[in-house]
Design a protein around this nucleic acid. Structure first.
Lengths: 331, 331
DNA sequence: ACTGTAACTGAAATCGATTTCAGAAATGCA
DNA sequence: TGCATTTCTGAAATCGATTTCAGTTACAGT
């Protein structure tokens, strides 16, 4: 069923059918009725692809995620879908599995003529990313990292992590092991680490005396790292840059016959959905990922409507979640 | 940059450019070189929408999910993306937030002329769903529920749940509380419950003596339900139809000063990623959701290629995960 | 040299919608 | 009534690709 068929059935021209479909331009009430009747009768659904071609917009936005099956990513996407729906937009999602080449390929593919805008959750932004993105003319919003010239939705990693470490310091800890992540990931790998070292330095605590472990985002990696740390010396607290990492550490600690928080306090960042149901419930920082998705989408649609790419930073609030994986050191 | 521009730059006709782009038909080596050169020089990306219109296929599949920010859904989607990528397909995801009307709207919208096929993760299939789906001519695959006439990817809920309950029975439990979910959800709400009652009956254990709680999928709901059960009487085991529900139950039990599994054993279904890191690690059934996504996509592409809708059931394996949230009853 | 086939090419039609444009009908106002 | 708007309508152009079709050139075989 195409518009021509509807036109024939209603005894009008395709132009008229288009006019009633889009409620635009003059149509005599009588013909309008006739057309509407036919449309309803045959449950006519216009060909969205043809519309896109003619209208020069697809009503779709591209979403590039490193891994959709991740709590972070899926919550951001959830947020994006809610505002996309309000604007009558669909999402095309590109799951890159953390593969940089894939990200580039998708950027090019989605580019200019398939989607009206792109939201990119990058873990790492290389010069190639910048190069490719600078060639695209559609609006782009970046979630989780800052890139000059683009609107970025950011979690306040620095303040959040610092708040966390300061909390540990306030509780009397001076022996705070660090479990982190490769510095290729700017937000998680470098900013959270910097917040940690800054907090220590500002409190006059030696950073070089601390133990460091750097790995990937997996629970098992943190488990192993923690095990190695413990064979060397026993910190009174552990700052893990991610809840999953914290969980790995907690398990290692338990398996070494130590108790949390009595022997070692552990904190994370992110507030994974189940964090508060752990034993002990994990002290962490809650990031509002769905909100990030919402804000990112709102910014994107603004860009789409105005047609200008803004260089804008949108900071998403965090919330300190004091639970019971930390205890005070009595001097 | 459109094909015409490329043609002009290369000194050929659009038809020739099309031929080299698609590597189809005769093109003299010399002209091919020229065209390729121009394409590379200007980084020409063909307009996918125009291609879709002309080719009568969009190279996109629609994925309807009840809630993307759910471990189940996001893992299924992850699986779908991997095989879609192999076929050069993109995903359009429709997040319905469990709203039946939305599902119908999306089915109609994605229908016939936007995507080449649909994968639907439905929690509930109403007659309206059937009605709408029967009118679509594109292939449809359903994940998680069975619908006659469509290929369905199923988790073996009955066998998995029964295995779980039998395990409890083998451990000597006869007082097994049930924490379930509204029967509108066929797979989780009715099949898992039936498996439970069947297992009990087959073991000669009275079903009517058991305690039942029915709620939604939220941890908090299970927490409350469990609390109410405990005020009445204390079972020796709890069968929760979902890991989240099991976690809610565990917390309620702990908060009542009881120990798991010593006082009460608890099991779930689904094997949420963090289930094995709980204390105690949750005994549950592992569902391979990513595999479901892969199988669903494979079936869909087969349907797309052959053009026939099959009435096929694909059972996805499960794996029993014996951990330590259950203990034996000594008689 | 001649013919038949294979290799090659571009003009034009096509996919299904929207929109411009020009003309026709209806209406308002003097 | 006459003239100017306003309302209404459909033919045709358009969006950017693909493909058919008809025509040209190259080449092999006799």
């Amino acid at each position: 069923m195409k518009i021509k068929d509807i036109a024939k059935l209603a005894g009008v021209s395709p132009a008229t059918v288009s006019r009633v479909m889009n409620n635009k331009g003059y149509v005599k009430a009588e013909k309008r009725k006739a057309v509407e009747r036919v449309i309803r009768d045959v449950n006519y659904q216009p060909n969205e692809i043809a519309k896109s071609l003619k209208n020069q917009k697809s009503k779709m936005i591209g979403v590039i995620v490193p891994k959709i099956s991740t709590e972070t990513a899926s919550r951001v996407v959830d947020g994006i879908t809610t505002v996309a729906k309000e604007h009558g937009y669909q999402l095309i999602i590109a799951n890159t599995n953390l593969d940089v080449e894939e990200e580039i390929r998708y950027l090019n593919f989605l580019s200019n003529k398939l989607v009206d805008g792109i939201i990119m959750m990058a873990t790492e932004i290389t010069p190639i990313h910048e190069e490719v993105m600078s060639q695209l003319t559609i609006p782009i919003v970046i979630v989780g990292q800052k890139l000059e010239g683009y609107t970025s939705v950011l979690h306040d990693d620095y303040r959040a992590s610092k708040a966390m470490v300061n909390y540990l310091i306030d509780k009397g800890h001076t022996d705070i092991a660090f479990i982190g992540v490769d510095p290729k990931d700017e937000a998680v790998g470098v900013i959270r680490k910097k917040a940690y070292t800054d907090a220590l330095e500002e409190a006059g605590i030696s950073v070089s005396n601390q133990q460091f472990a750097i790995g990937d985002f997996e629970i098992e990696t943190a488990y192993k790292s923690m095990g190695e740390l413990l064979t060397r010396s026993q910190p009174t607290a552990v700052f893990a840059v991610t809840d999953h990492l914290a969980i790995g550490a907690i398990h290692s600690i338990s398996d070494h016959g130590l108790r949390i928080p009595d022997d070692i306090s552990v904190v994370g960042i992110g507030d994974v959905k189940l964090a508060k149901y752990f034993s002990p419930p994990l002290t962490t920082v809650h990031y509002m990922f769905k909100t990030s998705g919402i804000k990112a989408a709102e910014a994107l649609f603004e860009n789409i409507q105005t047609g200008v790419r803004k260089n804008q930073d949108i900071m998403i609030d965090f919330q300190f979640e004091e639970r019971s994986s930390v205890c005070s050191i009595i001097k």
